[in-house]
Design a protein around this nucleic acid. Structure first.
Lengths: 237, 237
DNA sequence: TTGTAAAGTTTGGTCATACCAAAAGGCAAA
DNA sequence: TTTGCCTTTTGGTATGACCAAACTTTACAA
């Protein structure tokens, strides 16, 4: 059965067919695509359209392309979406306003997350949070390690709703936001402050107090932003 | 100053240069790109790489391409990001689980939004909400019109944080989620139910009662989901 | 036997050229 | 001014070629 009409671009048909083969598993995940010259025979199309199709699939995140290597098949997941958005998002982060908007949205989401955690975290979530916090504490002297455990702690919050969209959002936030500054202005003293902030968040969650949890998280992230803002002399809000 | 190194694909350089011309405004928003044969002269590249560059820019949302027409320049904004993600997201909505995840994330966000509205909506927000609700009420007999005002009412909620990311998310939700069913199972009776749900949400916001507002919204969206689920016989949760 | 270097083959990236059909633009007739 | 035809421009596609990098095989030496 053919995919669709014959109108429009020929490359779109190839895209659709390859798409189908990827989602159906006929083209296995993490395996290289056939050679371009083989695909053109397989689909009865010129290399021009095969290459265009490959380009489109790449930008849709269904395959990964390295400059001179065979494209690697990648079954779509939520992380793929974020990865695909990355290029576009980048344009919106060129000025302070864009970064602030993204950061504010993160604060907004995480406030809701900790509230959710405080009101309905399961036992295993609590365990994960405790473990993450402990890892966090132990890493205070090592800023690189602390950064990792810091991200991990917040990551636990994103996993509590059991909805894969949230961890994907977390990945987005950390990859688009953090590199801007997070790594460069760390010290054991700052780590200590952040650890204590995490601890107070967890404490509020343990108390099953959504209001306190939300406030603790809000304080934590607002303070972090304030620190960055002052350090980089970004002027008023 | 040149953009980057000479390694990798030649098309990437063209992409970068065109990108720069778009964000700088040298290529005006909403105007057509120069002809391909002109661009190849301008950049000293073959048509192959020009076309590849155009394809990449298109998938990044920086230009809009119709099959046989000149690409139209589009300055990147938050809506662009969503638009670019659309193609990828589509793959995650093929099964019930994907749709449910997206819907749940929407519920999660909107719960936080109405809470925010109840605790810190400004006067003009209240006015907008009242107006949107009134429009909603007047549209009860006309299902198509009701759909529009329904979306608009929720849209007001997304604009309250004054963060353009949220309206963009709203667009994403409505464009990815609604077409699945929203239009097909409407009736003046259902419209009435939904209108009343909106009204109770606004009432709670007017009372400055975040808990009630959140609960009202939760009931509203859960009921809507339940209705769809039963109608389509999607089995248990 | 095994590690490795050289030679040969495949394959992605790019270019030049050509053709077709649809869009755009110009021009004459109504 | 509007309508309809004709020419030019331009996007979509196909071929064929070439290069350099990646891959494979072969050959040789330890």
């Amino acid at each position: 059965m053919d995919i669709g009409n014959e109108t429009g671009r020929a490359a779109d048909n190839v895209v659709a067919m390859l798409e189908a083969k990827i989602v159906s598993g006929e083209l296995e995940d993490q395996t290289p695509l056939p050679a371009e010259r083989e695909l053109m025979e397989q689909f009865g199309a010129s290399r021009t359209v095969i290459r265009e199709a490959i380009s489109k699939l790449s930008s849709r995140g269904l395959i990964e392309t390295k400059p001179r290597f065979r494209p690697i098949v990648r079954k779509p997941d939520y992380a793929t979406v974020l990865h695909a958005c990355g290029n576009v998002v980048q344009h919106l982060l060129t000025d302070k306003t864009g970064i602030k908007n993204l950061y504010d949205s993160r604060v907004f989401i995480e406030r809701a997350l900790v509230r959710e955690a405080a009101s309905s975290a399961r036992k295993e979530d609590i365990v994960s949070l405790r473990e993450a916090l402990e890892e966090n504490r132990k890493a205070i002297p090592d800023s690189n390690e602390f950064y990792r455990t810091d991200v991990a702690f917040h990551g636990v919050l994103y996993r509590i709703p059991r909805n894969p969209i949230f961890p994907a959002m977390h990945e987005g936030y950390t990859s688009w936001l953090a590199p801007q500054w997070d790594r460069m202005l760390r010290s054991p003293e700052r780590n200590e402050v952040n650890y204590l902030a995490h601890k107070s968040i967890l404490d509020a969650i343990l108390e099953r107090d959504p209001v306190a949890a939300e406030e603790a998280l809000n304080n934590h992230l607002k303070a972090a932003w304030e620190f960055v803002r002052v350090t980089f002399d970004w002027g008023d809000e």
